[in-house]
Design a protein around this nucleic acid. Structure first.
Lengths: 341, 341
DNA sequence: TTGTAAGCGTTATCAC
DNA sequence: GTGATAACGCTTACAA
């Protein structure tokens, strides 16, 4: 929508000069008389002139806008990331276009289309759980379009990535459970196609190995959804058996919360009978009973850093491909009541 | 950034026709031979042609983009609203530009500038806590620019607003506690200067009056912060006394959660000894022990409805001012374990 | 010191 | 059926 805004033409007409003169005067180009500059600026000010960013975009093939493709906004971790993105983008004069995929591949592809159509300068991506084929992103990268993947990162040639050290976080969490004397730790794993799930599982397994404890395949159960009900049911069943685990390391806090309910529904006590550690430090995790130990991810920092990287790429003029990159931020183990006995 | 995309011109040149022909062929205009249409579409498809949205914006003074000005993304309620906004915007083919103000007026004003510069079609606003002067919005409304205020709504002539029935929500919550046989209900109130706090307190008081129960001033305690510690301390003290309340209606879930901890720390049982109801249905509220009864605000719906209203305004051609509006969405009382005995 | 004109990609309006 | 042209708002060679 065009809000009755003054254009350069309007100012030019009113002052009986050409638009180029106005354009130059406004930008303090050399070779414009002080008198003209003064008059132009005065009128521009009076009429509250604002350059039309769309015209500029068209002219310069640059929109000062970055796109963010994200699975879910209503997710403590992602909303924290968005906040970090917003901050850095704002500081550098960039706008942020938000595309929520709801974990749907179709929606993700359509978002990429939007990005292309809108001459967006660069893209920050955390792909959906459904995404196993990355052609829609590969095409962008091949054309030297600036893309930074964050958190959920693909295995793509020449891509720029930033994520958290999920492996180490999981390793630390598991080691902590072991140090508390838990002997049989169940892992509620995430969707298999996400690297983060694999890394967390590996951290879990390596911690067991380091402690010379057996890695039992039936103690690793996938929770693809990550919702409460899923892990509730699983745990309500698994912990009923005679040979039950005595601890849980969950791929995320929501699964951990469901697991806690499942365990409690059987009359087992946390942390006395069963220790629990989650992942992500969602807002609720300090409020469940007992407070949930968890691995906190630096969401805000990821958002900030990803955006910094992206803007560097955007502003690196030239046609050379970007140097591939993988930055890994460290997690922090937050020990609370659910895992200390 | 321009990604080596084909333009109408490119296609025209390759097929030895004019750009207008290509443009028309692509849109199935009447009066283009089927043969030409076929050839054009074929090549467009092969070259993966996508119309340049920026050029369209310039041409049509319409960007199919809406702006969202919001205090904080990392806030369960607001992120839910954003999610609703995203959904409806996407369905109608609109993009969403996100501007987070961090509760700063300066940032809010700067965001409005951005919106104007970028020919954004319309604006959704929940203003910052610092905002007491609304001139930057008033100017837009006077120019018949589409603006919808949500949740935090101003008292502005000719504005379109959508918010939640806080009064009724509080009334229902209190009435529910009464119906469960609780006789002495403490209200943990919000900051006195916010309308929502006042409305909720009024709902609480009117429910008591309706039941012919006394409204005792010392049973209304302000929790300006709304953080856990605050209400924890208050309740740990108030419920130690001989003449203690037997229920709590809190201005928000965070305060309710702290209150629950405070009550439990004295060995009192929830809901047997003390009933608790919160407000907002934060994500954690179903996960505390026992699950917290609460008044859910339809965040997603607010986002959806606000966006519907905005898009209607945008697409209502013509220059007449918009009809002022105030829509109030109803809350829903979610009865869970903390208040049923 | 200033003006003219072309061009970014698209479409509406004529004209043929 | 199709083409030429202008226009959206702005910048920038090139001319004057």
């Amino acid at each position: 929508m065009k809000i009755g805004q003054a254009t350069i033409k309007d100012i030019a007409k009113a002052l009986n000069v050409s638009s180029s003169t106005v354009s130059r005067a406004l930008k303090d180009y050399p070779g414009i008389s002080d008198e003209t500059k003064r008059k132009v600026k005065e009128l521009a000010d009076k009429w509250n002139y604002r350059p039309n960013a769309v015209a500029l975009s068209l002219r310069k093939s640059k929109s000062f806008t970055i796109g963010v493709i994200i699975p879910e906004v209503v997710h403590f971790f992602f909303s924290t990331v968005i906040s970090g993105i917003e901050e850095v983008a704002f500081m550098h004069g960039y706008n942020v276009i938000l595309c929520q995929t709801n974990e749907k591949l179709k929606r993700e592809i359509s978002s990429v289309e939007t990005i292309i159509s809108n001459q967006i300068d660069g893209l920050l991506v955390s792909f959906s759980k459904e995404t196993t084929n990355f052609d829609h992103f590969k095409r962008l990268i091949e054309q030297h379009y600036p893309v930074v993947f964050f958190d959920r990162i693909p295995n793509l040639e020449n891509s720029v990535n930033i994520t958290v050290n999920d492996y180490q976080g999981a390793f630390d969490a598991t080691k902590h459970l072991i140090s508390q004397g838990y002997k049989d730790i169940l892992h509620l794993a995430g969707p298999r196609n996400l690297d983060i799930s694999k890394n967390r599982m590996n951290g879990y397994m390596d911690a067991l190995k380091e402690a010379e404890m057996p890695v039992k395949p039936h103690r690793i159960i996938e929770c693809p959804e990550g919702v409460q009900e899923e892990s509730f049911k699983i745990c309500a069943k698994v912990f009923k058996e005679q040979d039950r685990p005595d601890a849980i390391f969950a791929n995320n806090d929501m699964a951990a919360a469901g697991a806690m309910r499942g365990v409690k529904s059987l009359g087992l006590k946390i942390p006395e009978d069963v220790g629990v550690v989650g992942f992500s430090n969602w807002q609720f995790s300090s409020m469940v009973d007992p407070p949930l130990s968890t691995v906190s991810q630096p969401g805000f920092k990821i958002g900030e850093r990803a955006t910094q990287l992206l803007i560097e790429m955007i502003e690196q003029k030239g046609d050379e491909p970007f140097t591939p990159k993988l930055e890994i931020l460290e997690t922090e183990l937050l020990i609370r009541g659910s895992s200390v006995r």
